[in-house]
Write a protein that binds this DNA or RNA. Structure first.
Length: 569
RNA sequence: UGGGGUGUCGUCAAGUGGUAAGACACGGGUCUUUGGAACCCGCAUUCGGAGGUUCGAAUCCUCCCACCCCAGCCA
């Protein structure tokens, strides 16, 4: 428990401008507590960009001893579904955050919001407008020209009250009338040109059913929901900066419990992927990926299925910082956070992905030895396990070369290497098939080197992982890589479509992989390091006890691969 | 041609008048029964540009340039 707490306190959000504002507000006495909120619209799945916001909002509240609300911004019944509220709750929970009792819905406030709208009308600050959607657009003006006032702008309070009430009762068709705030049609900020705050939608809502046929817009509902909940700091992304004057205007007109401060920060962009809901949906709809939880997707469900630990995502979100400039974070940082976490926690196993048969000529045919292997050299507390060794083994195809280039110091004819936790072996011969392909490597072992050390002090340059043929468990292994070939797939200057930059090798499926026998016991949710290969986990969707499927979470850093590439250039 | 933002290393990002943190990436090295990990070293005389103020400027002033967002009864 204490250790847990200690670990948590290390997970602080590093300094940033929002934290500065909060600290100043606490210091000056403007606030005595911090109340934030994460306000998703339940119309889609969460992705790692949302994780940044979640970690910020929940992290800040946690750190200052306040709280963070989970509030669904469900003001548009046309787009929202119950299915998404459940998946969003699951994702937030999985990321490690708890909203406690503070689960809210903007739709919980529809009655109060309606009353606030009436109050605005009574103050002469809102009016019912009969203009059609097209006319409203025309009257709004353009970015460089001011708008024109609606001919309905100066209706009497009584008439507005009556019309608004009749809107509520369902006397009008969709688009026939709206309620608008009366602000300034000449404002340079288009959001202030008498924005629509209520519209007619004859649609049933996932929570309020058919009780309402008028619904508040985001601008009206959001600030008031914040005020109702006593939010102190309302943190959102940059595109809402232009909405802040409206946020403040609405709260200034009304008798509200408090006036939260809206603060904007730059949303997360990640290299070698796309983040917009529209683009992710296209990947799903065109069958380019296996659904929203495809392990290559930046969705929370995709990251989860990929096997990425939530702690690594939290750490990543804290490391990227919070600022106002548009940026693209290098996905290598995410990968680093994943390796960093898994290196410390993941038990090691041996798994041969591309098997090459090795026969140890001087090892008895029927003998089996149980060799002790360390589960995690970074954490000896994880203990050891026994792995069977016998005469016929598999090693990695890439660990043998008949004609090795310089700097390759794995197995080759005449060479001696170490089999991890086992023996030194020396290659004596190779066996090829009719096409010349090497199908078997013949070796001898040195019985004196059991455990991996030579009594005579003899050294070897390489240590290979291996699996005993007789004992191996078969598995399918899916090697995942970056979805795109270019850092910024939707930033093509020549207007090329982002799918033109897909990485054809983002998924490589390997069958007939040979794993050490203990891995039959692997369970969904566990993560392993397959030594010298990377980190892997069972696929939660497709793996079956008699047909194991492992996903590669991330590779190990591979210096040899770098050398090899340099050599071939 | 309107309004709102932003420009510090390849990528993020500190710094808020006192002489450019840190991380990732990258390069080199030590060590190693994972070519993993760990450890060490290197990596912006310069802060979008040009002027100016000052003993002193990334930080203050002026002008300019670039990029992002806004004309949903979406959020």
């Amino acid at each position: 428990m204490t250790a847990q707490k200690g670990a948590k306190s290390q997970e602080k959000v590093p300094p940033n401008f929002i934290k500065d504002i909060i600290e100043e507000d606490l210091r000056s006495g403007k606030h005595t507590t911090v109340i934030t909120r994460f306000p998703p619209e339940p119309n889609g799945y969460l992705h790692i960009g949302h994780a940044k916001s979640i970690v910020l909002n929940f992290g800040l509240a946690e750190e200052f001893g306040g709280r963070c609300h989970l509030r669904f911004d469900d003001t548009n019944p046309l787009k929202e579904e119950e299915e998404f509220v459940e998946s969003i709750k699951e994702d937030v929970r999985w990321l490690g955050y708890d909203w406690g009792e503070h689960l809210y819905f903007a739709s919980d406030y529809f009655d109060r919001l309606y009353e606030y709208a009436v109050e605005l009308i009574k103050k002469g600050k809102a009016f019912v407008c009969d203009l059609s959607p097209e006319e409203i657009r025309e009257y709004r003006g353009t970015l460089t020209e001011p708008g024109k006032e609606s001919p309905y702008r100066n209706r009497s309070v009584e008439e507005n009250l009556d019309l608004f009430e009749r809107m509520r009762r369902g006397e009008f068709k969709e688009g026939e009338r709206v309620l608008r705030a009366k602000i300034d049609m000449a404002s340079g900020n288009i959001n202030m040109r008498d924005p629509v705050i209520y519209r007619i939608l004859h649609a049933s809502h996932h929570r309020t059913g058919d009780k309402w046929c008028i619904y508040p817009t985001y601008d009206f509902a959001h600030c008031l929901s914040d005020a109702i909940e006593g939010i102190t700091h309302s943190i959102c992304t940059l595109e809402f900066e232009d909405h802040r004057p409206l946020y403040d205007w609405i709260l200034d007109q009304l008798d509200v419990p408090c006036h939260p401060q809206q603060i904007e920060f730059a949303r997360l962009n990640l290299s070698y992927t796309v983040m917009s809901k529209r683009k992710l949906k296209e990947l799903v709809d065109r069958g380019i990926v296996d659904g929203w939880d495809d392990p290559r997707m930046p969705t929370i469900s995709g990251l989860r299925r990929r096997g990425i630990p939530p702690s690594a995502i939290r750490e990543f979100c804290k490391r990227i910082g919070v600022a106002k400039r548009d940026s693209i974070v290098d996905i290598a940082l995410l990968e680093h956070c994943i390796r960093d976490e898994l290196n410390k926690t993941a038990p090691r196993r041996m798994g041969v992905l591309r098997p090459l048969k090795v026969v140890i000529e001087n090892y008895p045919e029927d003998k089996t030895e149980e060799l002790e292997c360390i589960n995690n050299p970074e954490d000896m507390g994880q203990g050891t396990r026994l792995v069977p060794f016998s005469r016929v083994l598999y090693i990695e195809e890439t660990d043998f070369m008949e004609d090795p280039p310089k700097k390759f110091y794995r197995l080759a004819p005449g060479r001696e290497v170490r089999l991890r936790y086992a023996y030194f072996i020396r290659c004596t011969d190779v066996v090829k098939d009719a096409s010349g392909k090497i199908i078997e490597v013949r070796c001898t072992y040195d019985p004196q080197t059991k455990g991996g050390n030579a009594p005579d002090g003899r050294r070897v340059k390489a240590t290979l992982h291996w699996v005993s043929q007789r004992h191996a468990v078969d598995a399918e292994v899916r090697l995942y890589d970056r979805l795109f070939n270019v850092p910024n797939p939707d930033g093509a200057k020549d207007g090329r479509h982002f799918t033109e930059f897909l990485n054809p090798d983002s998924l490589v499926t390997l069958k007939g992989c040979k794993l050490e026998p203990g891995l039959v016991e692997a369970k969904v949710g566990e993560r392993y390091q397959f030594e010298r290969n990377g980190y892997f986990c069972l696929d939660s969707k497709d793996s079956r006890p008699d047909a194991l499927v492992f996903n590669r979470i991330v590779t190990l850093k591979d210096t040899w691969e770098k050398v090899r590439r340099r050599l071939s250039n």
